[in-house]
Amino acid sequence: MNRNFIAMLGIVTALLMVAALYMAFLYVPNEATQGIVQRIFYFHVPCAWVAFAGFGLVAIAGALYLWLGDQIWDDLGQAAAETGMVFCTLVLITGSIWAKPIWGVWWTWDSRLTTTLLLWLMYGGYLMLRAAADETPQSARVAAVLGIIAALDVPVVIVSVRLWRTIHPAVLVTRQGGHGLEDPRMVATLLVAMAAFTALFAWLLILRLATLRTRARLNRLTLEIALAEAGD
């Protein structure tokens, strides 16, 4: 991975993040009904987007690994899962912080919260499997399969959880999509925040991937030294 590219991406991420912070805290007006609390939404939604994107990436990397067998896809799967897990956790935390003043509870079985929680649990299972398996090509294939199996579940989860919540008598009135983006400044802020978090996700992902690639190279070199010392 090109070092300059990573540095550039880091700088871009930093600039975008500063802009997003400025806009979310100072530029954008308060939302009419929710007040200041609604501003967390500009971090919450981008986190959710990259968490789901990361999940898709794990599955794609898994499929490519099974197909092509190149170690880099395995490393990508791991990096995407770890990075995605971080953002998925942030989604749950920021969601809770927002839910307390708005809905009056830290947690509610809202369809989107529930879907995210299940996603988080699947990420956890995937990472646990990777941590508990040996570093062999067979383990990599098994992890790839799990990544695919879990991603296949996402559409079913979304449909079933939504039905579950709508058919079930609603305890709380959820504001479906009612985040009130009536002001163009809100749209602009959200777009910048989206870009900032996408860049942050990509940057962290690439850093992690570079670390994993370096480790793989180190393993290979260690092995070569061991072979050279033992032989002849």
Partner: peptide, 11 residues
């Protein structure tokens, strides 16, 4: 064949 960084079989 290697297990991790342990070579078991060589060439």
């Amino acid at each position: 064949m290697t297990f991790g960084v342990v070579p078991v079989l060589r060439n």
